[in-house]
C-alpha cells in the first residue's frame, strides 16, 4: 500500500493508464448522449444534418431553438406540471407514510404485524400492475384527465413507509418516552420528535420520489389526454409528435430543459443522490 508514496513502478503506471483509459472511454460513452443533446440544441437545422459532425455550431441557434421550444409548445407548462405533480405526490407520501411508519415502528397494537406484512407485499408489486383497475377506478370517479388522476396512485408509497419505519426503529424508545412525559401527544411526537430526527432519511426518500415522478411516463400516458396537464416526459412526446420528428433543434432544446432540473440537482447534491439510491436500492 505504501507504494503510492514512492515513485510509481512500471506495473503500477501501466495499471493506472489502463484504468483511466477504460473509465475515460466509458465516461465518454455515458456522457455522449447528453453532449449530443446539448450540441444539437445549439445548432440551426442545416448544420444538424451536415455530413461532418462538430461539437459546437458555426452559427449559434440557441435563441431560435430554445425560443421555439418554449413558444411552439407549452414547455413552461410541462415544467410547471412536473414540479406541481412531484411536489404534491411527495407531500402526500410524507403525510401518510410518516405517521404510519411511526405506528409500525414504535406503537404496540393489534394488527401491526399484519399491516407490515401487507406493506412488504406492496413492495413486490410493480406500479404498472395496478394500471388497469386504477384506470377503471378513475373513470368511475370521473376524474380521468385531471391532476388528481395523475397524483392519486402515487399518494401512497409503501416504499416510503418501509424506509421510514426502518429508520424510526433506530430512534431510541427513551426519546419517545421522554416526549410523552414532557406532555406531547402521539401526533405531536410524529411531527416534533420523529420528523426532525428523520430528516436525512426523508431527504433521501424525497430525492428518489422526485426522480421517479419527474420521469414517470407510463401512468400519465394512460390518464392524460389534455396537453396542458402533461408532465415533462409526456409533454416531450406531444412535442415530438407535433413536430413530426423533423425539428430536431427545438426538440433537443426541450429535452435539455426537461433533463436540466434532475441533472443540476444531481450535480449539486451528488452525495445525497448516490447515498439515497444505495440506501434504498431503488424500487
Amino acid at each position: 500500500m505504501d507504494r503510492m508514496t514512492r515513485r510509481m513502478s512500471p506495473a503500477a503506471f501501466a495499471f493506472a493508464a489502463f484504468r483511466h483509459a477504460v473509465l475515460g472511454l466509458g465516461s465518454v460513452l455515458m456522457l455522449a448522449p447528453f453532449v449530443l443533446m446539448v450540441a444539437i440544441s445549439l445548432k440551426p437545422p442545416g448544420e444538424i444534418f451536415a455530413p461532418v459532425f462538430t461539437l459546437l455550431p458555426e452559427t449559434w441557434a440557441i435563441w431560435e431553438n430554445y425560443g421555439a421550444a418554449f413558444q411552439r409548445q407549452p414547455l413552461a407548462r410541462f415544467l410547471f406540471n412536473g414540479f406541481a405533480i412531484t411536489f404534491a405526490i411527495f407531500a402526500l407520501q410524507a403525510l401518510t407514510a410518516l405517521p404510519c411508519a411511526y405506528a409500525l415502528a414504535k406503537l404496540r397494537w393489534r394488527g401491526r404485524e399484519t399491516t407490515f406484512v401487507f406493506v412488504l407485499l406492496g413492495l413486490l408489486i410493480p406500479p404498472q400492475v395496478t394500471a388497469i383497475p386504477l384506470y377503471i377506478l378513475m373513470w368511475q370517479l370521473g376524474i380521468l384527465d385531471t391532476y388528481a388522476a395523475i397524483v392519486m396512485p402515487s399518494a401512497i408509497s409503501v416504499f416510503g413507509i418501509f424506509l421510514m419505519r426502518q429508520f424510526f426503529r433506530t430512534v431510541p424508545d427513551d426519546l419517545i418516552h421522554a416526549a410523552r412525559l414532557d406532555g406531547l401527544g402521539e401526533f405531536a411526537i410524529v411531527w416534533r420528535i420523529m420528523l426532525p430526527t428523520a430528516i436525512p432519511a426523508l431527504i433521501a426518500f424525497g430525492i428518489l420520489s422526485f426522480v421517479w415522478n419527474w420521469n414517470e411516463f407510463f401512468w400519465p400516458l394512460i390518464v392524460v389526454q389534455s396537453e396542458e396537464l402533461a408532465p415533462p416526459p409526456l409533454g416531450i412526446v406531444f412535442f415530438a409528435n407535433a413536430e413530426a420528428g423533423t425539428a430536431y433543434g427545438p426538440l433537443m432544446a426541450a429535452a435539455t430543459v426537461v433533463n436540466a432540473p434532475l441533472v443540476l440537482a444531481f450535480l449539486f447534491a451528488q452525495r445525497w443522490f448516490i447515498d439515497g439510491v444505495t440506501m434504498t436500492g431503488v424500487k
Partner: peptide
C-alpha cells in the same frame, strides 16, 4: 392517566435529549 398527566418527571439512562433541539 397518560404519562403527561401524572405530574412526574423522568431522567433516562440515555438522557433522551432531543438531538436537533
Amino acid at each position: 392517566l397518560a404519562p403527561k398527566a401524572r405530574d412526574v418527571a423522568m431522567v433516562f439512562q440515555s438522557y433522551a435529549l432531543y438531538p436537533y433541539m
